[in-house]
Design a protein around this nucleic acid. Structure first.
Length: 108
DNA sequence: CAACTGACGATAG
DNA sequence: CCTATCGCCAGTT
């Protein structure tokens, strides 16, 4: 399993109505430093693997795309999933950041 | 093989 | 809050 494959796998696990940061995905995939790969994969494999690219934002909780270059579309898709934005255009991580398998080995 | 490219992230000022 | 820099990894050229 290569890092890229792991990243793809993680991306596909992001549930509807939740978001994750590039760094978070990279960390889950095994390389905390591979945020750039996430970016690259979204560029190269979004169509191929039907990745939920719109559920990925930067560490600040804001959309990284520029208005006119996808920003509007991404925001629109997120709002469609029930995600709300603050007036400054940020997503409240406390409410929408995805937490993988939050419920695992909870017993001892 | 070296340089370049990314929708990044952390840090410093 | 904002800009500037450096570090990171992998795919392209």
């Amino acid at each position: 399993m290569t890092l890229s494959e792991s990243i793809i796998a993680c991306l596909k696990q992001i549930p509807c109505g939740m978001v994750a940061s590039y760094g978070q995905i990279a960390t889950l995939a095994g390389n905390p430093r591979a945020a750039r790969q996430v970016v690259r994969l979204l560029h190269t494999s979004t169509k191929k693997y039907s990745l939920p690219w719109h559920r990925v934002v930067n560490s600040k909780g804001t959309i990284s795309l520029k208005p006119g270059s996808g920003y509007e579309m991404q925001r629109s898709m997120l709002e469609s999933e029930g995600i709300e934005f603050t007036k400054t255009g940020r997503i409240d991580f406390n409410r929408y950041q995805w937490k993988p398998s939050l419920i695992k080995e909870l017993e001892d």
